[in-house]
Design a protein around this nucleic acid. Sequence first.
DNA 1: CCATATATATGTTAATTACATATATAAGAT
DNA 2: ATCTTATATATGTAATTAACATATATATGG
Lengths: 134, 134
Amino acid sequence: MQEGFGHGCGCHAGRKTRWVEPSILYMLWEQPRHGYELMTDLPELGFVATQGDPGAIYRTLRHLEENGLVVSQWDTSGTGPAKRLYTITPLGIENLQLWAESLRQYKLALDAFLEKIDKIHQKQWSNDETGYTL
Amino acid sequence: MQEGFGHGCGCHAGRKTRWVEPSILYMLWEQPRHGYELMTDLPELGFVATQGDPGAIYRTLRHLEENGLVVSQWDTSGTGPAKRLYTITPLGIENLQLWAESLRQYKLALDAFLEKIDKIHQKQWSNDETGYTL
DNA sequence: CCATATATATGTTAATTACATATATAAGAT
DNA sequence: ATCTTATATATGTAATTAACATATATATGG
């Protein structure tokens, strides 16, 4: 099936853009962390909901490390199994700034679109040419 | 290869979220149009860049029609080959309003994230603990 | 020694993006 | 006549992301 929609009627209910990559970079820019910490703390960022999707975290971290945007070292202190402590690199910070720029551009487009889309309600209630109601 | 990135260094340069579906629904809410018109006019919306990607338009239109959000009729008037004229349905308008809501939620998260991410520049220039410069 | 919390990692499917190309009709130029 | 161009719709496919499920391993507490 090709849904990702909700009510079986084809209506929109849940496409998401989580921006996992810039979110992780930002958290690591604040301070070095390990994967599990990122997984639990990212939702607090208010931007990504990665709870129950640890795959997104660890795959992204490995991708970032392959490209030199973060580095990791094993941390055997503390309780529980060994953890990788990830640290952002200078290249990673540059990359995060690129993300910031492109997200700002993105915001401009989104704001413009929302302003247009706001007209729907107005017209819908004031001028019902179509003859159907919601 | 797994890039989609720019400089061969793994840095961000181009992930896009075009929101083709709500954009098409909005254009059809303004007035009935045919596919080619959508393809050429959508970039003016400032949100999607679908020039050179007609596939996105026609596949989305068929998907929308399958789910009853738009209907089409052949238009043989005018010059050139016959064209399908697409019209949004009441269900499509409801769907567009769902999109509007979720995009507004999305905007809130994006704004919050951008506010945080703005701190990068400040800290980078004022307090260079790391010892490297950009 | 068993359940639980911590921690990392892999696998799979679906959806979207991005790009390329195929098909067909009509108008205008040579 | 036919060649090029503009119009118009449609299909194919690879790459990326999202979404979900599951596997592996270590330490702690009962």
